[in-house]
Structures are given as structure tokens and as C-alpha cells.
Amino acid sequence: MERTQLKSISISGSGTSSGGEYDQVKVNGSAHIHGDLICEQFKCNGSAHLEGNITTDTAKINGSTHFEGDVEVKEMTINGSTDIDGNLLCDELKVQGSSTIKGNVKGKELIVRGSASIDGNVCSDEIDVKGQVKIKGDCETESFEARGNFKIDGLLNAGTIDVELLRHCEAKEIGGENITVKKTRDASGFKKLIKFFMSNHNDQLTAEVIEGDNLYLEHTHAEVVRGNTIEIGPGCDIKRIEYKTSLEIDPDAKVGTQEKI
């Protein structure tokens, strides 16, 4: 069946639309859209407010946008700031500015270079954070890579977890196959400067439980750590360790009880 040619809308200045089905939707000033929106491309260079749900192939937000409903998108880039009150379903999400999502996030690739705050659960194949992420629910992914700050109120469940700590990172529970937590080493001049002003913030990870097959932990504070092969690096404070195959502890770490199972 041949597709009917869809129209495009472009709002320059200030305007309103009732939503609908379009090819391209472009906002260069300020726009208020009252209904649901289905389009191939959504681009906002100014500010936009959408009262309904949006389904689109690509969404690029350079200004600020507020979606009151759910967002379903293949590729989304946020360079400005975005608020989503509903759920976000995406293939690829890149946050270079800031975003707040009140619902759940489901995606394939999540890249955060700015800050993202999510009230629901996050489920993605890959998560790459070089900035700040706050998740109030659980976080499930095959690969979790973080060079920055994160706070997860629920369970962080990932195949591979690779973390370079910045300031105080937190997760209630961590589970996975290979878990590596390290302190950032290459302190560039800029980072040193930041640290100088925030000297009361130590780089550390706090978790209640960490469970995995192969663990390497530095500067980690935990109640219980369980795993097959465990290596505890400097700066750790762990109340209890249960291990199966091997355990190595750095002299600069504090460990309560340890038990081989």
C-alpha cells in the first residue's frame, strides 16, 4: 500500500497545534501542542509543551520541552532540557543536557553526558554515563559503564558493571557477572580544580549488598559482598564477605568478617 504523503508543520514564533500525524514537526519558537503527535521527525529549537503522547522516529531537542504523556522514539537526542511525565520507549537516547523522566525507561542504548533523573525503572541493553544519573527504581542492563556520579535507589542488575567513581555514588543493591569499581585515576587539571572546591566529597560507592561472579572493588562501603572471585582494593569498608573461589584484600581496606562457602 502506498503511503499517503504526510504534511509537515513548522512553528516559528509562538503557536499552538492540536496534534495529529505529520512528517516533520519543527518548533523554532514556542509551541503548545494539545493532543497526541505522530511524526517522522520532531525537532525543537525553542520551547515546546506537548499535552499528549508522542511517537516519532527521531527527536532532537535543543531547547526545552515538556512531554506530558508517553514518548516512543527510535533515536532521541536531548541537548537542552526535557521533562517527560510518562514512560520513555526508545532505541537510542542521548542526553547531553538534562532530563527528568517520571515514568519508566526502556531502551537499547542510553548515553548520558549531562544529567538524567528517572523516577521509574530503567531497562536497556547498554547504559553509558559520563555525567550524573539518578534512578529511583531498579536498573537492568547488559552493560553499565559509568565515569561519573550515580544514585540508584533500587537494584542495579547488569552483566558487566564498570565504574569509575566520582563523588558519592550509591546503589541499594548491585548484582551481576563482572563488577569493577575503581577510583578515577587520571585527574586532569580541571578535575583537580573541581575537587579542590568540593574537598568534602570523597569518591566512594555505597551499597548494601553487592553480589557477582568476579568482583574488583575500590573505595566501596558495603554491608555484604558475595561472589566467586573477589578482590578488595584500597579504601574499602565492608562488614561481611562471602566468597567461593578466591579472596584478596588490600592492606588499605577494612573488612569485618569473611567466610569461604
Binding site: 537492568e140 542488575n157 547488569a158 551481576g176 557477572e177 561472579d213
Partner: peptide, 16 residues
């Protein structure tokens, strides 16, 4: 884990 002879990693992967 002991009874089923699986590792933490497997359990978490299956949960995922």
C-alpha cells in the same frame, strides 16, 4: 545457588 549449582551472575542474568 548451592543446591542448583549456579552462580550469582547466572541468577541475575536470568532475572534480567
Amino acid at each position: 545457588l548451592e543446591e542448583a549449582n549456579i552462580s550469582y551472575g547466572q541468577l541475575y542474568r536470568w532475572k534480567r
